[in-house]
């Protein structure tokens, strides 16, 4: 535990002593702020229009009209930003030769991976936390439902956790950070759109592809549906990514 903490603190410091974390957090909040602003603006104009008819007005729902698309957009921005956040985690150690220090210290491979993983997750939490300010305004000036917002954020966090685990895996494969970022970006995008193929495939494959896609599980959560299978999906995905990383690093032993 102490060892994980040591790696965690080191990685977190390194994120925040370089422009890396600030850039990622700033761009993420800027773009999600833009989405939030334009969605709210659209919602406002719709409200004016709908208010002419009492039935229409009762159909207005800020959760569905603002938060659901906002979470969808934020998830895409996460997909674009997180490979940049994770690309250096192992690639840089390899390039700089500092992995020799880590692997000749009395640390287990798991401790190193988890320390780095939790550090990246913390940055994700900060990114999402900053955007949480937006929703305060909607509570001040409107009355959205809290639950779908919470499950939406939970979904974003779980999604981020899965993205980070994939990013760490690709970072462990190469000493080139750009290659790591491109590979993880490609893999994440593929996992995102893999369900597009489902309508073109047979019933068994359709189910598998639908299950594998990030999109499906995330959609459920933004609508406020808290299903254990979706949570299980993301957690098992993260485990899988970390397990692959572990295998890559362990493979030094028989190479």
């Amino acid at each position: 535990m102490r060892n994980i903490w040591a790696i965690y603190v080191k990685e977190l410091k390194s994120y925040f002593t370089s422009p890396m974390a600030y850039a990622v957090i700033a761009i993420f909040t800027l773009i999600s702020g833009f989405f939030f602003y334009s969605l709210i603006w659209w919602f406002n104009s719709q409200s004016l229009y709908y208010s002419s008819n009492p039935y229409w007005a009762s159909q207005l729902n800020i959760n569905q009209m603002v938060y659901s698309p906002l979470f969808g957009n934020m998830s895409i921005v996460l997909l674009l930003m997180l490979p940049v956040l994770t690309m250096r985690l192992f690639a840089e150690e390899k390039k700089m030769g500092t992995e020799e220090l880590l692997y000749t210290s009395p640390l287990t491979v798991n401790q190193i991976i988890l320390g780095k993983y939790f550090a990246a997750l913390t940055v994700v939490l900060v990114m999402l936390g900053v955007t949480g300010i937006y929703s305060i305004f909607t509570f001040v000036y409107g009355n959205p439902e809290l639950n779908p917002i919470l499950t939406g954020y939970l979904g974003l966090f779980l999604l981020g956790a899965a993205f980070v685990s994939i990013g760490i895996f690709f970072s462990s494969l190469t000493e080139n950070q750009i290659v790591a970022a491109v590979l993880s970006f490609g893999a994440l995008l593929l996992l995102w759109i893999i369900n597009w193929l489902s309508s073109a495939s047979g019933p068994t494959w359709r189910e598998i592809l639908e299950y594998l896609s990030f999109f499906r599980h995330f959609d459920e959560l933004t609508r406020g549906v808290l299903d254990t299978t979706d949570i299980f999906y993301y957690i098992s995905f993260s485990f899988f990514g970390l397990f692959l990383t572990y295998s890559v690093i362990q493979s030094r032993k028989w190479r």
């Binding site: 080191k10 390194s14 002593t17 370089s18 700089m96 030769g97 500092t98 992995e99 020799e100 220090l101 000749t104």
Partner: peptide, 9 residues
Amino acid sequence: PENLPLYPE
């Protein structure tokens, strides 16, 4: 090690 394992930052 031959390549110093230092973190420049």
